[in-house]
């Protein structure tokens, strides 16, 4: 198998620099609105702040995979004397919490690194983080060429969550019925 170059995109998070202003959420929600910037609603953001000021916990997390079930048990980590639930670092759209779900439909949201059309150089959340808690890096890595995995788009992820909720046969029936009605 031959080697190919793959672009890796990284958002680096410096928790010590975060001032908890949630500008990342604002920028993300605005950028992903349709039409662009037409609505602002942090509940639609694909980056969310976990904030607990009394415990000095400030963690931005990025929406990752959708999961249909919550974890069995949870870890609590102590880092420099502060306790963090492992959920504070987890980007899953999961039934245990209301993060990363479209507020109208409840369907999962996922960060796309602003690979929108047209693509922008730096993700919006990083651009709006003047505290520089979020910084962006790209690098190339040589990887074994493999068959390109099918990456689920936003609609497929949504459909997957509907499959989990109602079962595939029902969903297929509904779609067939709806398409017949034209």
């Amino acid at each position: 198998m031959s080697k190919v170059k793959k672009k890796i995109k990284v958002i680096k998070v410096d928790l010590d620099k975060c001032n908890g202003c949630r500008a990342c959420e604002v920028a993300c929600a605005a950028f992903h609105a349709n039409p662009k910037y037409s609505s602002i609603n942090p509940a639609r953001s694909r980056i969310r702040m976990v904030i607990d000021p009394i415990n000095d916990e400030y963690v931005p997390i990025r929406a990752a995979e959708y999961t249909k079930s919550e974890c069995d048990g949870r870890n609590v980590y102590t880092i420099n004397g502060k306790e963090y639930s492992e959920c504070s670092f987890c980007g899953a759209s999961c039934p245990a919490r209301d993060l990363f779900k479209e507020p109208d439909s409840g369907l999962p949201l996922r960060c796309d690194m602003c690979e929108d059309d047209p693509a922008i150089e730096t993700p919006m959340c990083v651009q709006w983080c003047l505290a520089e808690a979020l910084t962006y890096e790209e690098y190339e890595e040589e990887v074994e060429e493999e068959e390109e995995q099918v990456k689920l788009g936003e609609m497929e992820t949504s459909l997957k969550s509907l499959v989990d909720k109602y079962g595939l046969p029902k969903l297929v029936d509904s779609i067939a019925r709806m398409s017949q009605k034209g």
Binding site: A30, A33, Y37, S39, R44, L130
Partner: peptide
């Protein structure tokens, strides 16, 4: 607690002006 949208009349223009504000804050800092 709220999870609804706020809309603006001319979104791209408004967001552009907000970016100018952020740039000026950076400059002033």
């Amino acid at each position: 607690r709220g999870t609804k949208d706020i809309n603006v009349a001319r979104p791209a223009e408004f967001f552009g002006l907000c970016n100018e504000v952020l740039d000026y804050i950076k400059f002033r800092n």
